[in-house]
């Protein structure tokens, strides 16, 4: 992993079209500003982790669904 030290207001450049700027450091948090082309996906990592975990859990879904159909119909009419 490349590790760089930056102060507030300083930035790093990735390729020639992505800039990550340290906006502010306060209360143990760092606020970052990211400029990138619109095709570059930027997410808080834990969001992707959360979706990955839920995808894994979902694949443990049982194949026995007839009971489910009944439940959903019940819910709609409730």
């Amino acid at each position: 992993m490349l590790i760089l030290t930056r102060k507030a207001g300083e930035a790093i450049a990735i390729n020639d079209n992505i800039t990550v700027t340290v906006i502010e450091m306060k209360g143990g948090q760092v606020k970052l500003g990211i400029e990138a082309p619109r095709h570059v996906a930027i997410h808080r990592e834990e969001v992707l982790t959360r979706i990955l975990e839920e995808n894994k859990r979902a694949t443990e879904t049982t194949g026995d669904l007839p009971a489910l159909d009944a439940i959903l119909k019940h819910k709609k009419t409730a």
């Binding site: 979706i51 839920e54 979902a58 489910l68």
Partner: peptide, 19 residues
């Protein structure tokens, strides 16, 4: 949306609205 259905606990079914 993808559903997660715990085995044997159909009533605890959840939907993934985040992804």
């Amino acid at each position: 949306v993808i559903l997660t259905i715990p085995k044997g606990r159909v009533e605890e079914m959840t939907a993934n609205l985040l992804g």
